[in-house]
Amino acid sequence: MADDQGSRTEIGPETLVTGDVRADEDIVVFGRIDGTVSSTTAVIVEDGGRVGSRIEAPTVIVAGWASGDVIGTERVEITESGRVLGNVYAPRLVLLEGGAVKGRVVMDGSRPDSVQAPVPTRTVTARPVASQPGTAARRSAAPASRTVREPVSATRAKAAAAPAPRAAANPGLLDLGDDGEPKVD
């Protein structure tokens, strides 16, 4: 994902950025950004890193904590340690076991545009559930201009927005709120 000469922006573990970060190179977050983060290549939120608002890039990898919409115009990956409190928009999504999303998963190619209120409704944890493909598509999304036929092959473990099992019956469920401000913007 590195861009030609390998230049990139790295937010160190003890750095806080308050405001917006835009780049034509990779942005790697070990620390914290309270604001929107966008790149024309990739945004990587490392384990321990936090982003408090929208993330947008062709490739977004979340191994840390993201509270806000995550928009991967090509691909989103949420690792075992990744937590997303917000909606995920991506034609391709990889959600590894242990990773978590509290929000909608939209894989139909639509974008949030004006629809800015996420209102997370349930927590979906990644587990090897062979859910019926197709349920992930949102019903009344914004103008589904682009119908994306996702290559489902690699994304079996996608977080289908199918009715999640009750929290109690889901021991691996994490509590997104214990970790600072349970911000739901």
Binding site: G12, P13, E14, L16, G19, D24, E25
Partner: peptide
């Protein structure tokens, strides 16, 4: 640690910390 703002990055806001 170290924080690097790459040549093709622009930040509007504040940057604080111990890096």
């Amino acid at each position: 640690g170290e924080t690097t703002i790459g040549p093709r990055t622009r930040i509007e806001g504040s940057v604080t910390g111990r890096d």
